[in-house]
Design a protein around this nucleic acid. Structure first.
Lengths: 166, 166
DNA sequence: GCGAATTATTTTATATATAAAATAATCCCC
DNA sequence: GGGGATTATTTTATATATAAAATAATTCGC
């Protein structure tokens, strides 16, 4: 192999193929699990994943959340939340009220029906997830938690620190 | 703690909270990275992620792929592929022909333009991914590859083996 | 070779998603 | 306290996604 005279051994390959393969595998895993969970939610409860996810956010906070909070927590656009909220209102799973201190702000909450439906679904959902990950040892789960935390931190860093031009 | 007389110590907690947390973290990681990559693809090249992904599939096979193959590889519905292909035809990035041996089958390929555009994008894309994962050590990447392979296998097993009723 | 089952793709209806612009209300600061 | 910046949400236009039904072509058993 003939090397450019500027090239140092330490910074040699710069291939980055491994990171790309890792990203593709991560994406495949998530897509696979997401598809399975979506399918079960639809077949078992006739609910979509975004509806379930939004209800899951609301279940954590009895007082309700603003649409902006939901948007940030779910990492989706504001407009997306607007539509989801409309449909969950129609089906009677959430209610909304305008904040008394800031009339721009809409606070949404689970209704009694919404909470009951969600809790019922969440219990089964948890069992599905446990089953999906059942072939991992406890240590595997711990290791994955740690490595994904590191990945998350690295991705956040990359998001805010622009890449220097090549 | 008072135990039901049927409950054995070995099968005690059955909490499954760890698996759920792992799934949420996995989903967060993927969403975070996906969002960042999508943003860069749009800002830098004015292309969407599904278009990029479809082109990536086609770049791997010079002879082209059938729509069904694309659908399976990308893990999306057939109808989704139909729409994507229409738009990529319009922009001149792919062409399509009907198989001579089976007139049901449509084979799509990158055009010269499609291949050139994709290669140019893919090079930068790879650098973005490398940057996003840059804070992981080589060993972390290897460990993640191994653990995600195991996760993938476990998820596939769960997909085909129905959960026994609780 | 005929017809039933299968396979590949498209169509339909609808839900989810985004980005960007518009709207509306509050904040902030001089 | 008035006006510009900011913030929260909605609207608009479009792309992506699904599931399910429809269409069209092939295969397979007999």
């Amino acid at each position: 192999m003939i090397l450019d005279s500027e090239t140092k051994a330490a910074e040699l390959p710069e291939d980055h193929g491994e990171e790309l393969r890792l990203w593709l595998r991560l994406l495949t895993c998530t897509t696979l699990i997401e598809g399975e969970v979506r399918r079960r939610l639809r077949e078992r409860f006739g609910v979509t994943m975004p509806r379930f996810d939004l209800m899951a956010q609301l279940d954590k906070v009895p007082g309700g959340m603003t649409l902006s909070d939901v948007s940030k927590r779910m990492m989706v656009s504001n407009g997306n939340v607007t539509g989801l909220v409309e449909r969950l209102m129609e089906s009677g799973h959430i209610d909304r009220r305008t904040s008394e201190t800031d009339r721009r702000v809409q606070v949404i909450r689970l209704t009694r029906l919404g909470r009951a439906d969600f809790r019922r679904m969440a219990a089964e959902h948890k069992a599905w997830i446990a089953d999906i990950f059942a072939d991992l040892a406890d240590k595997d789960v711990r290791d994955l938690m740690r490595l994904l935390a590191k990945t998350k931190a690295s991705a956040r860093r990359a998001r805010t620190t622009p890449l220097p031009p090549a």
